[in-house]
């Protein structure tokens, strides 16, 4: 399987938590569902020209959601996605939000 760096890294995750961690050199991305730590490390290093010292990943699985409306019950699933928290070498930074 070969994914390009842009295919591996979907977008940065911007939230209160991720912003806090970015201050400590840990950057959070939404990544391709099939991406593994090695691929993520390579993609981040390629895209942002930094050195990655660690990658933590997790997958949020789809959940069934149901709700009743006037027209009857609707059921569906939340979107499954995979999150990667990348630790950079000390002192390195990623300027967020520039494309990706």
């Amino acid at each position: 399987m070969s994914l390009t760096a842009h295919e591996v890294i979907l977008r940065p995750v911007i939230s209160e938590k991720s912003m806090d961690e970015a201050g400590h050199g840990k950057y959070t991305f939404a990544v391709h569902g099939d991406a593994n730590k090695i691929m993520i490390k390579g993609a981040v290093e390629e895209l942002f020209k930094v050195n990655v010292t660690g990658v933590n990943v997790l997958t949020t699985k789809a959940k069934e959601k149901r709700r009743g409306t006037k027209r009857g019950r609707i059921s569906g699933f939340t979107t499954p996605w995979r999150k990667a928290i990348v630790t950079l070498a000390a002192g390195q930074k990623i300027e967020f939000f520039e494309g990706v």
Binding site: V13, S15, E16, S18
Partner: peptide, 9 residues
Amino acid sequence: AGFRPGKAP
């Protein structure tokens, strides 16, 4: 989205 009220930069 992603921030509690009053916490967004």
